[in-house]
Computed example of a mutant assay.
Amino acid sequence: MKNDQIKNIIFDLGDVILNIDVPIASKSFADLSGREQAEILTIFKESEIFRQFETGTMDEPSFRNYVREILKFPDLSDEAIDTAWNSLLLDLPPERVELLKKLATKYRLFLLSNTSSIHITQVNKILKASTGVERLEDLFEIVFLSYEMGLMKPDTRIYQQVLDKAGLKAEETLFLDDNADNIRGAAQLGIETIHVQKPVTILEYLQDYAV
């Protein structure tokens, strides 16, 4: 149900705007290295490589070198690593972008994503190919990315930074995310939330807001 107090909408990226399938990445790295997918998942979890990359403590060259190190595969090319890492990024339905354009006539729109620079480069390519829109910044007033902020959802500090930087009041702000922990983090600050759960999409969740 529509909340008439809402003036601002913050969107997550993966499985909210862009369809993703996270396990595909670990399978891609397993195929590259000749290891089992379960082993790859364990290696990545223990090294916290993706957390480091997505909070900006590791840049692109460091990330790629660390992948080579933990997979014990020194000859792995930059391109192969990037392709495997980006394999979890699927399609971006054009109708979701059309919804964003419609919402932008009534609300201030923002993006808040736990992500990495390699992913954002690829997302912008997918966005342009599917909709003609050059980059995410063309759809949102401000794009907030974890690797630039040094924080990740569901840390409440990341939501507070968004509110402060954009000059938003929590009670006038709606946040959509597919991760329940991220929803709870935002709700702790008094932000209105919608937990996006497939197969329902933002087209249905925000139908009343787009009218």
Results as ranks from 00 to 15, higher is better:
Glu98Ile: 15
Ser87Ala: 08
Leu127Met: 01
Lys102His: 07
Asp21Pro: 06
Phe11Arg: 09
Leu145Val: 08
Val143His: 08
Asp31Tyr: 12
Gln122Lys: 14
Ile120Asn: 13
Met152Pro: 01
Thr193Gly: 11
Lys128Pro: 01
Arg35Cys: 13
Leu99Met: 01
Ala30Pro: 00
Glu172Lys: 15
Lys153Ile: 14
Pro154Ile: 04
Lys169Trp: 02
Asp15Leu: 10
Ser77Asn: 10
Phe29Gln: 09
Thr42Arg: 14
Asp75Cys: 04
Phe11Thr: 00
Gly167Met: 07
Leu109Pro: 04
Ala166Gly: 05
Arg135Ala: 08
Phe144Ala: 00
Glu79Phe: 13
Glu192Lys: 15
Glu172Arg: 15
Val67Lys: 03
Val196Glu: 01
Phe63Asn: 03
Asp31Ser: 15
Ala166Thr: 04
Leu139Asn: 00
Ile10Ser: 07
Pro23Glu: 05
Ser77Met: 09
Asn114Arg: 12
Glu204Thr: 05
Pro154Glu: 02
Ala186Met: 01
Ala104Trp: 04
Glu48Ala: 14
Ile20Pro: 01
Ser77Pro: 06
Leu145Gln: 14
Met152Ser: 09
Glu172Tyr: 10
Ile40Met: 08
Val123Trp: 01
Tyr66Pro: 02
Thr83Ile: 15
Ala38Asn: 07
Asp178Trp: 05
Lys102Glu: 03
Thr42Ile: 09
Thr156Val: 13
Ile20Trp: 07
Ile202Ala: 06
Leu189Lys: 11
Tyr147Met: 07
Phe63Met: 11
Val22Lys: 14
Ile126Ala: 02
Leu76Trp: 00
Thr55Gly: 04
Gln37Lys: 14
Lys2Arg: 11
Ile191His: 00
Val133Tyr: 06
Leu92His: 03
Met152Lys: 05
Leu174Asn: 01
Asn124Ile: 06
Ile183Ala: 09
Ser62Leu: 15
Tyr147Asp: 01
Arg68Asn: 08
Arg135Glu: 00
Glu36Asp: 09
Phe50Ser: 06
Val196Pro: 04
Val133Asp: 01
Lys153Cys: 06
Asn86Ala: 09
Ile49Gly: 03
Pro23Arg: 06
Leu176Gly: 07
Thr55Ser: 07
Leu100Met: 12
Glu204Asp: 11
Lys72Glu: 00
Leu41Ser: 14
Gly132Trp: 06
Gly14Thr: 04
Leu112Arg: 03
Lys72Arg: 04
Ile9Phe: 07
Leu18Glu: 00
Thr83Lys: 14
Thr173Gln: 06
Ser113Pro: 07
His195Phe: 09
Ser47Glu: 05
Val123Met: 01
Ile20Gln: 02
Asp155His: 11
Leu136Tyr: 00
Ser28His: 14
Asp4Trp: 06
Val16Thr: 06
Asn86Gly: 05
Ala187Ser: 09
Glu148Leu: 12
Asp164Ala: 11
Glu54Asn: 09
Gly34Gln: 12
Phe63Arg: 02
Glu95Leu: 10
Leu90Tyr: 05
